[in-house]
Write a protein that binds this DNA or RNA. Structure first.
Lengths: 248, 248
DNA sequence: TCAAAAGTGTTAGGCCTACACCCATGC
DNA sequence: GCATGGGTGTAGGCCTAACACTTTTGA
């Protein structure tokens, strides 16, 4: 039966048994330290194999009856107490051999990682240090070699963050409730790089858009003229939803 | 031991066993019929339960040793012979109870779907009708009730397509090798809606960018002045990579 | 000759850029 | 006073939206 043979030759993988998966959720949780102008990512120290004593992204395996997003929320809640945060799905990494546990037991169980991308307000985020377990904010530029393919996931998350900043108001999820326009500008430069825009133009553009309202309150930080505190007005922003590139 | 009790109350899900997954890959495959000005999506008729005799997105379960992307490629290759195509990961849908098979056997196996988004050139794509199995291009506007949560996945893919068109040169993956500027314009209007831009402005903008080269060949389609055929010059486009919003 | 489709031009307004400059404060 | 950081203004260039117009074809 040539047809049968041909089929086997063309597509031998179709006859393979289905892969069995455990599904993990790993979160790239960013925060910005406005005082020091650094972009931070939350890392946890691993206390089991594989990758014992490596830093890695906070993650967990999905339990029965639990949705992916619930699992992401669960680890997040285990690690930090944050008032408000932004969370969205990032990417799914699922190649074979991305987890050494696959080799260990030869039952063919695969470990797939659905990654999530989160932003929390640095001031509001209280890390939950449950005794021995290491947990820390790491400057993104100084992140060491991580467990699994977590460096890759982090890179991907970082790219997403840069894109998000440009066309969505995520910045205001990271800044404190009230902020100066310099704070906002600093945030953008920290994430997007030094020369993304002139300060005065950035300022003019944002103010013209009209969803930043001046509270009238002034703060003085060291030398220099005191700055106005602004607040993001979500209602006034509404018309800009779904429209391309509002920020720059 | 109050700690133990409290733990159970606060976070009962942590004590649940891990969920076991089968992972499916479902692809939203778009194509544009330039002659009829319609956006099409590839659907296949299901011949097994669940959702017997429903249309659904082409998909498959991931086999042992197979990467997600390989699986996506595999179904694609089973359904159509396309010269070139664009493929990228879309989103992962993984809530419990999205697949009725979960209820059927109570072993707690979950079905997770990693969806992919693909674009193929309509003229180059030859559907592989393997006997009885139904497979067809459906106008996106006339898609019926689909199996599983495939309508939701399709909606998500459609949104991604619109975004992609605006800031990346995917359009040229869907158009034939040589195309008229009207073809291009029609494509944009079909996907983005009627009034996304004036034809003459659209034309002027794209030509100024300089990555469309006039072949000099003219085609006459019915009445009216014959149009020039253009070709997309990937090299000339290179500098626009990573830059925001080139098209519109 | 006329309608249809392709292609060109024009003009007013807005926005982006790159600066230069003024203001309020700590030291 | 003066350095420092906050805030304002402006002139040129470029892009955009809207529309009028010309060219080339089939019927």
């Amino acid at each position: 039966m040539p047809g049968r043979i041909q089929r086997k030759v063309i597509d031998p993988i179709s006859s393979q048994p289905l892969a069995d998966f455990k599904v993990g959720v790993d979160s790239v949780i960013f925060s910005v330290d406005t005082s020091q102008n650094r972009l931070l990512v939350l890392l946890v120290m691993r206390h089991q194999e594989p990758f014992l004593n490596y830093w890695g992204l906070p993650g967990t395996l999905v339990r029965q009856g639990e949705s992916l997003e619930n699992a992401a929320d669960r680890i997040l809640a285990e690690k930090i107490r944050a008032k408000n945060l932004y969370l969205e799905q990032l990417y799914t990494f699922g190649g074979p051999h991305r987890d050494p546990r696959e080799e260990a037991n030869s039952f063919g169980i695969r470990y797939l990682s659905v990654s999530y991308f989160a932003l929390v307000r640095f001031e509001d985020a209280e890390l939950i240090a449950d005794g021995v377990s290491g947990i820390a904010w790491y400057p993104v530029k100084e992140v060491p070699q991580l467990a699994f393919d977590h460096n890759e996931i982090l890179t991907y998350g970082h790219r997403r963050l840069r894109n998000k900043l440009e066309y969505s108001p995520v910045a205001f999820e990271v800044l404190p409730e009230m902020f100066t326009l310099s704070d906002l500008y600093q945030l953008y430069t920290t994430v997007l790089g030094e020369n993304f825009s002139d300060y005065s133009n950035f300022r003019a553009k944002l103010l013209k858009l009209g969803f930043l309202c001046d509270t009238g309150i002034k703060v003085s930080r060291g030398a220099g003229r005191p700055a106005s505190l602004y607040r993001f007005d979500a209602t006034a922003f509404a018309p800009f939803k779904d429209k391309p590139l509002v920020f720059i």
